[in-house]
Simulated assay, not measured.
Amino acid sequence: MILEGAARESRGRRIARGILAVAYSLAGMAHLARPGGFVAITPDWVPTPELVVGLTGVAEIAGAVGLMIAPLRRAAGVGLALYAFCVWPANFHHALNDIPLNGVHFGWWYHGPRLALQPVIIWWALWASGMTDWPFRGRGGRTN
């Protein structure tokens, strides 16, 4: 169910949205300021990785801003969820090929949780933007 108005939102959803917006803003700035590590984990089949990394940084910042603007919120949530889904192959590429970043090899202690949490990040974008109430629908008569 799509929420009809901010009055029906819980404090938790507003906080989750703010945290997600800050996280995506920081990630977007990192993509733009220090693209080397992101380019390094980009799969070989992605054309012009430098350009793609730059565009993903812009997309992350735009999505973060959109989350905070009510008329754009739902579109931003869908966009960020799709973004998180689309960059998942880079996370797999990083993990499966043991690509070092700044000379550091990350083990499965890092890659395992990162890969497993990607669906949570996708859900988070949809829930924080009000695109879904799942799994909280119907609890205590509130949609969340």
Rank of each mutant, 00 (worst) to 15 (best):
A30N: 12
R14T: 15
G18A: 01
V53T: 13
A90M: 06
A21N: 07
R34P: 02
A59M: 10
G18K: 05
S129Q: 09
L82V: 05
V120K: 02
R34L: 14
P89N: 07
V22I: 14
L82N: 02
P113I: 04
L26G: 06
V58E: 08
R114Q: 08
G36M: 06
P100W: 12
A70T: 09
R17H: 00
G79V: 04
A84Y: 03
P119D: 07
A21H: 10
A59L: 14
I122R: 06
A116I: 13
R13C: 02
E9R: 12
G63C: 06
L80G: 07
A23S: 08
S25C: 10
C86V: 13
M68G: 00
F92A: 08
P100V: 10
V46A: 08
N102E: 12
S25G: 09
W108T: 02
W88V: 08
I15Q: 03
A95Q: 04
R11Q: 12
A84N: 12
V65C: 00
F92G: 07
R14K: 13
I99Q: 12
L67D: 07
R13G: 04
P113A: 14
G28K: 02
A27F: 03
P71E: 04
G66H: 02
G63T: 03
Y24I: 14
Y110E: 08
S25P: 00
H111Y: 15
R14P: 09
G36L: 07
G12M: 09
A128M: 10
T56S: 09
T42G: 08
L126D: 08
I122T: 00
G12V: 04
G37S: 05
Y110W: 13
F106W: 14
R13V: 09
P119T: 02
V78P: 01
L20Q: 09
A75N: 03
W109T: 11
V120A: 08
R114T: 09
E60P: 04
A30F: 09
V46I: 15
S10I: 05
L32W: 03
T56M: 11
Y83R: 12
L55W: 05
V120Q: 00
L96I: 10
P71M: 04
H93M: 00
Q118W: 04
W127D: 08
F38P: 06
S10V: 06
G37H: 04
F85I: 15
A27R: 05
I41F: 06
I15E: 01
A27E: 01
M68Y: 00
G36C: 02
P35W: 04
V65G: 04
L26F: 07
S25V: 03
M68F: 06
A62W: 01
S25T: 15
E9N: 11
P49T: 15
A27H: 03
L51H: 05
I69M: 02
I121P: 08
V104Y: 10
L51I: 11
R73L: 02
W109H: 05
P43G: 06
H94G: 05
D98R: 13
L26A: 15
H93P: 01
H31I: 07
Y83W: 15
W45Q: 00
L117S: 12
P119F: 07
V52A: 14
P100K: 13
H94F: 13
R14A: 15
A81G: 03
T48M: 07
Y83K: 12
W109D: 13
P49K: 14
R73V: 02
F106I: 06
I61F: 04
L32M: 15
